[in-house]
Design a binder for these strands. Structure first.
Lengths: 203, 203, 203, 203
DNA sequence: CATGAATGAGCATTCATTCAT
DNA sequence: AATGAATGAATGCTCATTCAT
């Protein structure tokens, strides 16, 4: 009975810790979007929760650590979209490219922290080489490579290719972030044709 | 005589102001490269000059203003390279694209402030929409458009196209920034083939 | 039977409390020696035990309280050495002085918390006038006084004398703390001759 | 004329800096005496001046740095007293010892920061080995050694001797700090006889 | 126009202490 | 009695900016 109580308490505590962490992450996301990563401070974040300032430090050491957690989390949630795109493409290269770009453009800019205040994502990820960023890069590489089993495209430097795709996605995504009236479908269509033409033209 | 003296003094003063401005910009560039834009402060910059801290404010209001000036300056110095590329291409689209990319990759990363500390340029420019960034964007647009006088490529959304090129240049440039052993020529060759193939494939 | 059980539990509890207190004191002693009294915090101490931070407050109110307990404990353990010195001297004043000084120099500096981080003991004791410090001071006084039953040295202000001895012990002990190659015997010999000469010369 | 003005301004500035430094030192001394070194913080010190908090850091990096400056300053002002004692003693060893101890006991405890809150001086100095502390130690050594030109006392380890004297001065000084009714003369007399007897008895 | 010390709001961070479990 | 996460006042320190000289 006592043990049961203790277990219950223990569970409650763990749940509470998770809730608090989630609270901080949520607050940080909103603050990053509204004020911007550089302009905000830890107080701005903690003020958005019902926690005390010191509590922040039980969960994260710095503002950057929150950003990375948030960022990695976004990438982790984005990766399945790429996988789905691959699976649903069912071997059709064009379909895969289109679905992947569309996923990226549709993936809520809110979630990827892309807006005028934070123009970091993906590029930051490629740069910072966080685990999730590397994993995403690798997964995209794998999928792209899987299309050249029959010999086509195999001579392409896949680092160059993936980087180019990321660059395109990023810059076109920026257009979307600036102008919501743009159509994600149009952007994805353009990207797909551009990338496929590009690949086919690599000698 | 007095007038002459005054004129001489006046001239001296103007020269001195220019020299001081130049000093600050130079110091800032070095500091941004070494410490990084976010990590440094105005003191770090001014310490690199033989000026006093208060003097900074006679030339710039904020650190960001220096960055933008520096950035715009870099873009302004980069623009002629694009122009030269265009002129030397002499109507050959592929040559233009290749030369433009090569120029970008060769343009000293130092000058574009691209390194692990400052991954802003171009994208920041596209984002911040500074005058020079807009001008560069427009110039590239103009050159690209000039190739479709005979009707080819004209249906392409030039904003999308320029953004894609910038995205590719930026991400591949990042590879170069990370790994100096990479060949700018190879990167430019890849980019050129990729972009030309892409353009030709846009329906 | 129940009573017996209760008694057993009660005993266990008391033993456990003692063990916990001992744990905290031990941890504190190590932390004071390694990090220093001023630099460490309660967490540093409690981290060295297998107790939780809140538990600290069941035993001590402040870090200082631990220091005093530790300090008094050291003095309490040191006092018997003085007593032994006195008894073994068997009325020989010089022997007593020598043995007392030697005891002090040999009493593990670790135990007296004398090192570069904590140069407080004895002087702190004389200053803080903790019970044990007063007791030690008094005991030394008593022993010294016992040598003047026959009239010699009796005119000496014993507060001055004891303070002088403590001052000498402390400063020479500091030499030992700084330089372990020094010989405790040599220091005690010097102290003894010095003190005896001094006493004999007091008019 | 301009040069003259500039020089005047420059002079004023330097004077102002000195005045500010003095202000901080004075405030710190008072705060150390009233609240104690450990208990006070930099704000407590700066609040006592008419300076802003940030200004503190133009002069000192830490609270400890102020303490050391203050402490070294006190030692520096104390040293001449020892010199005077030596000169006025005119070769009379006893006179020197007496005058030196008397100087110490008379040297305002305020100036040496000796009180219940700060029981560091001299011992801290011997410990911290600050330049002034070393210099004082050396000067005392020199004077003591000068008395053994004819061969007497020369076998005495002068480090032990000086340390013993410092220990005595310190502990007896503590008595004075605790109880102002004590006579500095009596303490100095006792110390003198004690030390002289001690020295003569070293074999 | 240059100087550079003074300013003080602002921030990250620490840590003794509390208290629900 | 033990736990350990939450608390938030307290503190050291930074740094853009001002301004008397």
């Amino acid at each position: 009975m006592d043990n049961f109580e203790e277990t219950k308490n223990h569970k409650k505590r763990i749940e509470n810790k998770l809730r608090n962490r989630e609270q901080i992450l949520n607050a940080a996301r909103l603050v990053f979007l509204e004020i911007g990563y550089e302009s905000c401070n830890i107080r701005d974040i903690i003020r958005r929760t019902d926690l005390a300032s010191g509590t922040f430090y039980n969960y994260f050491k710095t503002k950057e650590e929150v950003f990375i957690a948030l960022h990695d989390n976004a990438l982790a949630r984005f990766r399945p979209h790429i996988k789905t795109a691959f699976e649903e493409a069912n071997g059709d290269f064009g379909k895969f490219i289109y679905k992947a770009f569309l996923s990226y453009f549709n993936f809520k800019s809110e979630e990827l922290l892309i807006n005028s205040h934070n123009n970091k994502i993906l590029s930051a990820s490629a740069n910072n080489q966080t685990p999730e960023a590397v994993a995403l890069f690798d997964e995209i590489s794998t999928y792209l490579n899987s299309f050249c089993i029959d010999g086509k495209y195999c001579h392409i430097n896949s680092q160059y290719l993936v980087s180019s795709c990321i660059g395109i996605a990023q810059e076109l995504g920026r257009i979307l972030a600036r102008d919501e009236s743009q159509s994600a479908h149009e952007l994805a269509k353009f990207s797909t044709q551009f990338v496929i033409g590009g690949i086919l033209n690599i000698k």
